[in-house]
């Protein structure tokens, strides 16, 4: 499946789950701040990607869980070096530019761009 075909399917999933217009789903759009995703939407996205691409997604594989609660990873509202390294290792598909520029915890959501989801699917299909 080409990257374009993957993008089209991912866009369809996001349009359905987040009730956004097709043209809002650009590669650089962030799921939370720009497309308005809330926590339950991430589970919805995982479920629908599984249906669309016929693979299984493990818990925490696409989106991390419990990073923010671990004092090793987050201190004083900022992601630590170890936290950033762990996220990078666990989520090689994500986009860390914004979080690296400003480590505040709110920016963790910014690592999930549409592009990151497409990367994830592409890697998953390649295995």
């Amino acid at each position: 499946m080409s990257r374009e075909e993957i993008f089209d399917k991912v866009r369809d999933v996001l349009v359905e789950v987040l009730a956004v217009d097709e043209d809002e789903v650009t590669e650089q759009a962030t799921l939370t701040s720009q497309l308005g995703a809330e926590s339950i939407d991430f589970l919805d996205i995982v479920f629908r990607l599984e249906q669309a691409f016929e693979f299984k997604i493990g818990q925490g594989e696409l989106f991390p869980d419990n990073v923010a609660q671990d004092p090793e990873y987050v201190q004083d509202g900022m992601v630590t070096d170890k936290g950033l390294a762990t996220l990078r290792e666990r989520l090689p598909h994500a986009d860390f530019a914004t979080l690296e520029a400003d480590r505040k915890i709110a920016n963790v959501g910014e690592i999930f761009t549409v592009d990151a989801v497409v990367n994830f699917v592409e890697r998953k299909l390649a295995v």
């Binding site: 339950i40 589970l43 919805d44 479920f47 599984e50 249906q51 818990q59």
Partner: peptide
């Protein structure tokens, strides 16, 4: 049930 895991269900 369309889908269910430890986190929830659709």
């Amino acid at each position: 049930i369309e889908r269910m895991d430890a986190m929830g269900a659709a």
